[in-house]
């Protein structure tokens, strides 16, 4: 079992009057993949940038394996890899040279280097481009090389900032598989993402952040059970535009419905309590109202429910 750890202690980052991170406290230990979720501007990238010395905290500490990043960067990042904000790779370099630069900086033994670079390139499906200049690559190809660079040097801690950005659906699926395979190798992976399905698919734990504050942290099951409770959200679509009076008088007053909002002319979104049994009842009631219901489906997964409710509470 890995003894890797990362820890944010009262981590705060201010940009003038704007507080990007507000006393963030978070400790991750062991071998697992932790998803870092939050809306745009929540503080996800800011956190990862502080952990990789791209920015400095206004106050507080960022520790990797017990070592303060900003007091002892070289040692703290010794067993780390990071991919933050889709870095540009020097365009004059080939894939092999770009990865060799990382290997040189990390002190990867010469005996392992060639094999490891070729394995990393193969892992991101860029074998045939290994000696091509990075400057000619598309954004997606560069992102694959960036991911390959995180595999160099046997890192025990990996930071990934929206790693599937810029990739096509196939590339996204491949990257998720890579992350899953890395998870099996005794590593602590901290991955920010907008994509809830990606986090559900890849991560063991989730940390939710908004306005620079940690809203929740735990295993996916714990967090969703704790915060989504028995509430649900469903979208109902009608054959024609629904009158506002029908929404206010009829739909809003249905049993177990908490709130109703219009998504577009024909579709409304219902927040309800009571789980699946209530959902069944609401569907039956909507049909009986004869408003022209043509579709009724759950709007979000369990994690999405939690995410939406926490973000809304935060606002």
């Amino acid at each position: 079992m890995s003894d890797s750890s990362i820890e944010a202690i009262n981590l705060t980052k201010n940009y003038g009057k704007f507080t990007a991170l507000d006393n963030l406290n978070l400790k991750l230990e062991g071998s697992k993949c932790v998803g870092f979720l939050g809306p745009n501007g929540a503080g996800k990238t800011t956190t990862l940038k502080i952990f990789t010395d791209l920015i400095k905290p206004s106050s507080g500490s960022a520790l990797i394996n017990g070592l303060e990043v900003h007091g002892n960067k070289k040692k703290a990042l010794e067993n780390c890899s990071a991919l933050v904000e889709t870095p540009e790779i020097y365009p004059y370099m080939s894939t092999r040279e770009a990865l060799n630069l990382v290997a040189d900086l990390k002190g990867l033994p010469r005996s392992d280097r060639k094999r490891m670079i070729e394995e990393a390139v193969s892992e991101v499906k860029m074998d045939e481009w290994i000696d091509a200049k990075v400057g000619k690559f598309s954004k997606g190809m560069k992102q694959r090389i960036n991911i390959a660079s995180t595999l160099i040097g046997y890192p025990s801690v990996i930071f990934l900032d929206e790693p599937t950005t810029g990739l096509d659906p196939r590339g996204m699926a491949e990257v998720r598989e890579i992350i899953k395979s890395l998870k099996k190798k005794d590593r602590l992976i901290f991955m920010s993402s907008h994509l809830l399905n990606e986090v559900s698919d890849v991560c063991d734990e989730v940390a939710l952040i908004d306005h620079g504050k940690l809203l929740a942290y735990g295993t996916l099951e714990d967090v969703t059970a704790r915060f989504s409770g028995d509430e649900g959200i469903a979208d109902a679509t009608f054959s024609g535009p629904l009158e506002q009076s029908s929404i206010d008088k009829d739909v809003s007053r249905l049993t177990n419905v908490i709130s109703v909002e219009r998504v577009n002319g024909n579709t409304i979104r219902l927040r309800f309590k009571g789980g699946q049994r209530a959902q069944e009842g609401i569907l039956a009631d909507l049909v009986s109202l004869k408003l022209g219901l043509v579709e009724f489906k759950k709007a979000f997964s369990k994690l999405e429910d939690t995410y939406m409710s926490l973000i809304q509470e935060g606002n």
């Binding site: 070289k74 040692k75 010794e78 067993n79 020097y90 370099m93 040279e97 630069l101 040189d104 900086l105 990390k106 002190g107 990867l108 033994p109 392992d112 490891m116 394995e119 193969s122 892992e123 595999l151 040097g153 046997y154 890192p155 025990s156 491949e174 598989e177 890579i178 395979s181 890395l182 190798k185 005794d186």
Partner: peptide, 30 residues
């Protein structure tokens, strides 16, 4: 997809980042 990186697990702790002079040389070279 099924390539094995497990060889790296044991070596994670033995890998030593070069001293700053060596790293300066690396940056200079590139």
């Amino acid at each position: 997809m099924d390539q094995d990186f497990s060889v790296g697990v044991e070596e994670t702790r033995t890998l030593k980042v070069p001293d700053s002079f060596t790293q300066i040389g690396t940056i200079t070279k590139y």
